[in-house]
Amino acid sequence: MAEPEQVIPDNTASFVLTSTDIAEGESLGKKHELNVFGGNGDNLSPQLTWAGAPEGTKSFVLTCFDPDAPTGSGWWHWVAFNIPDDVSSLDTGVGTVTGMPAGTIQARNDFGEKKFGGACPPPGVVHRYEFRVHALNIEALDLDEGATPALVGFMTHVHTIATAKLTAVYTR
């Protein structure tokens, strides 16, 4: 008789990312478009809410990445880390206007700024914007605001216990 297969519960299935500003697969609004490089939007970060983080979560990392940018390596629009574990939402504009929760560090994005940088694909081209919240098993990444998105990503990957994702699109 064969041994019964051990079933390991998936504690990440209930970790979700939602928004009152954007929906999965739908278009970002003009308020989330960049206001330079030909864009004329409001450059506001979208409202985001996450729920169902697994037991053992001690902090969060938030990223927004455009895999369709014509760079060969995509484009980082937003990288924020050391978000406290008692934070579960961010209001519209918090990444650009009003400021992040205490203790949070915003790394330099690919625009060279330590904040959210809005969507600005070439005219007529649809790009995807992948918003991800990573639940980490440590209270803080041992990095400062000078960390590159790649370094934040590496350290995040090492400590992630769950990831919630919301992908929006945009074209001008």
Rank of each mutant, 00 (worst) to 15 (best):
residue 3 E to V: 14
residue 5 E to Q: 15
residue 8 I to F: 11
residue 10 D to W: 06
residue 12 T to L: 03
residue 12 T to F: 08
residue 14 S to M: 14
residue 15 F to D: 09
residue 18 T to V: 12
residue 20 T to C: 14
residue 20 T to M: 13
residue 20 T to P: 07
residue 23 A to N: 09
residue 23 A to D: 15
residue 24 E to T: 15
residue 26 E to R: 13
residue 26 E to G: 13
residue 26 E to Q: 15
residue 26 E to K: 14
residue 27 S to R: 14
residue 31 K to E: 15
residue 33 E to V: 08
residue 38 G to P: 11
residue 39 G to F: 07
residue 40 N to E: 05
residue 43 N to Y: 03
residue 46 P to D: 10
residue 47 Q to P: 14
residue 48 L to T: 03
residue 48 L to W: 02
residue 49 T to P: 09
residue 49 T to E: 14
residue 49 T to R: 13
residue 57 T to C: 04
residue 60 F to A: 04
residue 65 F to M: 04
residue 66 D to Y: 01
residue 67 P to A: 03
residue 68 D to Y: 06
residue 73 S to C: 14
residue 74 G to E: 00
residue 80 A to N: 13
residue 90 L to W: 09
residue 93 G to D: 07
residue 96 T to N: 07
residue 96 T to W: 02
residue 99 G to D: 10
residue 101 P to W: 06
residue 101 P to Q: 03
residue 103 G to W: 11
residue 104 T to D: 06
residue 105 I to K: 03
residue 106 Q to I: 13
residue 106 Q to F: 09
residue 109 N to Q: 09
residue 110 D to S: 06
residue 110 D to Q: 05
residue 118 G to C: 09
residue 121 P to C: 05
residue 127 H to Q: 08
residue 133 V to H: 12
residue 134 H to T: 09
residue 136 L to H: 00
residue 138 I to E: 00
residue 139 E to N: 02
residue 139 E to Y: 11
residue 139 E to A: 10
residue 142 D to G: 03
residue 145 E to Q: 11
residue 153 G to D: 04
residue 153 G to S: 05
residue 153 G to I: 10
residue 154 F to M: 11
residue 159 H to W: 02
residue 167 T to K: 04
residue 172 R to Q: 15
